[in-house]
């Protein structure tokens, strides 16, 4: 029987876990143990619903509702002095409970405090963009969208950032394999020669770094060079590469499109 592989999380897993292994947790402290953090939390909790708050490894982690993310960060920025957003991104928990965890890492330069604002959103929902508060979120939110598909509402330019614009899928999802999916492996072939060229090119020719046994031109068989054009195929027939005759880009049409736009 084939081994069962869960489709919602295809990342590497521990091949062996002791059945009596109990996973320990990093120690957390109550927010009241830190004077400055408890002051900030008090300001925040008077205006926004707090789901949980604790200090872990010197930084406060506050969980809020995803509808409140803009409001909460605005309060932290304007009233608690968190002037810089160091980082934001998401964590994929779709396999566990169908949600993403979006986190915002904020820094207060004067009091040297860092806080992490966390909210959970379900797949398909969007968070409110915090670009009006921190311009740094401009690139970060685009990266989050690119990697997880989480849209930020009212973002000035919600477009892919690291992957090409015509990419399919979001690479940091747990359901996305490390080696890439079907679309990724044929991306260049589809784009240059068209989908119908997949069969003609074949998976073995997809890789431009592949070494051809009968290659007498690229000197790929170091130490076994033969004269140019020499037949070393040993009677084995060569399989010709058949290129597609259909065009991917209709030049005439695209020219007309351009004219139309003008």
């Amino acid at each position: 029987m084939r081994k069962y592989v869960p489709k919602d999380n295809v990342q590497a897993k521990a091949y062996y876990t002791d059945r009596f292994h109990v996973v320990p947790s990093v120690l957390t402290q109550d927010v009241s143990t830190d004077e400055i953090f408890s002051k900030h939390l008090e300001i925040l909790s008077s205006k926004v619903e707090i789901k949980s708050a604790y200090i872990q490894i010197g930084q406060m982690r506050v969980e809020i509702n995803h509808q409140d993310n803009y409001r909460a960060i605005e309060i932290l920025k304007n009233e608690c002095g968190y002037e810089m957003m160091s980082e934001m991104s998401a964590v994929d928990y779709l396999a566990k409970d169908g949600t993403f965890e979006v986190f915002y890492q904020l820094l207060n330069l004067k009091e040297r405090k860092r806080v992490r604002v966390v909210c959970r959103i379900e797949q398909g929902l969007a968070v409110e963009s915090i670009v009006p508060l921190y311009k740094a979120a401009n690139f970060s939110e685009r990266e989050m969208y690119d990697m997880f598909g989480i849209v930020a509402n009212n973002h000035p330019f919600m477009k892919r950032i690291l992957m090409p614009d015509d990419w399919e899928g979001h690479p940091l999802l747990k359901s996305y394999p490390l080696q890439g999916d079907e679309f990724a492996s044929w991306y260049e072939v589809d784009k240059i020669f068209g989908k119908e060229a997949r069969d003609a090119i074949g998976p073995e020719n997809r890789d431009p770094a592949r070494i051809d046994r009968y290659d007498t031109k690229r000197f790929s068989r170091v130490g076994r060079e033969v004269p140019f054009g020499a037949d070393i195929s040993d009677g084995e027939p060569e399989t010709p590469i058949e290129y597609s005759t259909t065009f991917l880009v209709d030049y005439n049409a695209s020219q007309t499109q351009l004219e139309d736009r003008k």
Binding site: V26, Q56, R114
Partner: peptide, 14 residues
């Protein structure tokens, strides 16, 4: 062969 298993939690270190 298995790798270390840090405790459950999250950290951001600048």
């Amino acid at each position: 062969t298995q790798g270390m298993r840090p405790p459950k939690g999250e950290v951001y270190v600048p």
